[in-house]
């Protein structure tokens, strides 16, 4: 299995007594985009967060089952979480750049992981800003605050920041839901570009977005994985009636 592909086996997440994610087994193919859809509270974001152990930070959260990434079960207590999160980047709903310059936002990760050489850092910053189509927009003001950028640019900066530590997998939790339509289109274009190098898992409430950008779609409901199939099939002829009802807007 390549370093990009991964899978979960019987992955459950509990918040105290609540069984929020119920024994989910899913394959994430090499360099494809997988969209997780479902009504609020269905467990999709919780599931996404357990893929890089973000739920560790939530008091009372407990995980059972396995997540196999690069020959390693990352749910194992011995997992080096810092190294894990270097391999698996995360992008959140609201852009959250650091209170630092554009340059420092991107250079932060590599520096943390021990890269001190200025030329090398310059190279990484440019490469990541180019990959997120931000370079031409910001190259003359790299030392201005990242917070001075527009919302859409901030989100692309956050993506550039997560690329800087050379992950193989990107997790995105509604990365475009706080953005205007043009910024949203740019993020979607970016995702199409990024999947050449990264496996991407995206949570979205926007059905059309899931249909446009993903290769596979998973429908979650009440903590269960109801259906997981090629996106094309999910949006033209899903096998489960509840999938059809949800994507057609009959509930949720």
């Amino acid at each position: 299995m390549s370093e990009h592909a991964f899978y979960t086996k019987d992955l459950s997440v509990y918040y105290g007594e609540k069984h929020a994610v119920k024994k989910i087994s899913m394959d994430f193919p090499d360099r494809q985009v997988v969209a997780l859809i479902g009504p609020s509270g269905c467990g999709k974001s919780t599931f996404l967060r357990s893929l890089n152990r973000m739920n560790d930070l939530i008091p009372g959260a407990r995980i059972e089952g396995e997540v196999w990434i690069g020959g390693e079960n990352i749910c194992d207590p011995g997992t080096d979480v810092v190294r894990l999160r270097q391999k698996i980047g995360m992008v959140w709903q609201r852009p959250n750049p650091f209170h630092k310059s554009i340059y420092e936002n991107v250079a932060f990760g590599p520096r943390y992981h021990g890269i001190r050489n200025k030329k090398e850092l310059d190279r990484i910053v440019e490469e990541c800003l180019r990959k997120t189509a931000l370079w031409d927009e910001v190259k003359d003001r790299l030392h201005q605050s990242g917070l001075a950028l527009s919302g859409g640019q901030q989100q692309r900066l956050c993506i550039a920041r997560s690329l800087a530590v050379r992950p193989s997998i990107l997790l995105m939790d509604e990365p475009a839901s706080a953005l205007d339509p043009v910024s949203t289109a740019k993020i979607e274009e970016l995702i199409a570009e990024l999947k050449k190098e990264y496996t991407i898992v995206i949570v979205t409430h926007n059905m059309q977005q899931a249909a446009r950008i993903s290769d596979k779609t998973a429908f979650f409901f009440l903590g269960d994985l109801i259906e997981y199939d090629d996106t094309n099939r999910m949006f033209t002829n899903p096998s489960r009636k509840s999938t059809d009802d949800y994507i057609s807007g009959r509930f949720g």
């Binding site: 059905m207 059309q208 249909a211 999910m234 949006f235 033209t236 002829n237 899903p238 999938t243 059809d244 994507i247 057609s248």
Partner: peptide
């Protein structure tokens, strides 16, 4: 309406 699935069919 951006119909999908059975609505689209």
């Amino acid at each position: 309406q951006q119909p999908v699935a059975k609505d689209l069919r």
